[in-house]
Design a binder for these strands. Sequence first.
DNA 1: AAAAAGTTTAACTAGATGGTTAAAATTATA
DNA 2: TATAATTTTAACCATCTAGTTAAACTTTTT
Lengths: 205, 205
Amino acid sequence: MVKTENTEERILEAARAVFIRKGLTGARMQEIADEAGINKALLHYYFRTKEKLFDRIFFEVFQTISSGINQAFTENIPFFDKIKKFIDLYIGVLLENPYLPIFFLNEIQQNPERLQQFIEKDVFKSMSSFLIQLSDEINAGRIRPVHPVHFIINMIGMLVIPFAVKPLLAPIVSRQLGIDYNDLLRERKEVVFQFIINAIKPIEK
Amino acid sequence: MVKTENTEERILEAARAVFIRKGLTGARMQEIADEAGINKALLHYYFRTKEKLFDRIFFEVFQTISSGINQAFTENIPFFDKIKKFIDLYIGVLLENPYLPIFFLNEIQQNPERLQQFIEKDVFKSMSSFLIQLSDEINAGRIRPVHPVHFIINMIGMLVIPFAVKPLLAPIVSRQLGIDYNDLLRERKEVVFQFIINAIKPIEK
DNA sequence: AAAAAGTTTAACTAGATGGTTAAAATTATA
DNA sequence: TATAATTTTAACCATCTAGTTAAACTTTTT
């Protein structure tokens, strides 16, 4: 066996970068080849079709997303710590992959069928354990009653959206308020946590 | 002058539907013509290029979004009422245009330059008046201190994300919890409002 | 009815793009 | 060094798609 892994790895990195930037329909095989430092013939030699290559990348992206969730939710730590950990971890991932959420959300809107292979799997088993823990906290009166699904949606929304609206908001807050949007993104680790705590902490101490 | 308005209107409706469903690169002029019930030659007769047609649609979409914001923020009503109004109005728009946010966010990620024409304009002047009102409330001690920009981002995130992740979550909550996702979306008018109120209401009454 | 505007038909161009192929060149392996 | 695996070159094919064109047809206006 020769150094095929190296080239394949470079192709995958390039494909991931280009697909996430341009989306499935926007990406060009030639551009992926260029970014990988090879030619189109070799690219097709490794991955016969654009579809096959995209499937692979989409799978990896899905793993990036779901493993982040699982990592934070699997640990056996107090509820508020888990929230904090989840937020830190997620914003960390997003800071490194700012284009990833819109790429992912756009592709599943265009082609929801692609998700079926994942929904069957146990990718979200950790999430259901989190839902149980959340219910326990509510029953014990340690947090206010909230619908667990709504709670998760709220959290994800506050984490993801600032990255998605960056092209719109960054110039505005920069011009009108003199704020650097990247600073603002980093602040959110603390801000979102505090906002959530305030929202779910019971009124009486 | 003949019944040109009628046809032009049908083209715009068709283009809006197709562009929002498929995006700029995914949309086909032939598909837009079909959806408008005309042929490709006539479509090009009204709008010379795909780009021109898209620009027009993108402008309209931007107006849909920003006019919703302005409508709620311009009224002279108490702060909490304004929040509630904003939420109701926004979820209403999203229920009627569920694909719109990802379309918009994807396009501005692909092509941020397109926004420049809008950022100059006073589309967001109502938002800055809202920011001032928010600061006043904080200074008067009627709500907890929150960074206004973070607050807006939180709100937008909680409103938009549930629509964006619908293809992923709808099958999951349907299968595992027996919940109809559309019911869940409608519930959010109340849920998000309550969550926000809880988060920003001061501790002492 | 005649003129003008709107619409269709149908064929066509030009360029982009995914994918293929075969031979040559390079690199690694035995 | 000989063999095998990897990579490049470069031309090529087929298809898709935006956009054009000119003539015929239909509807509206005068």
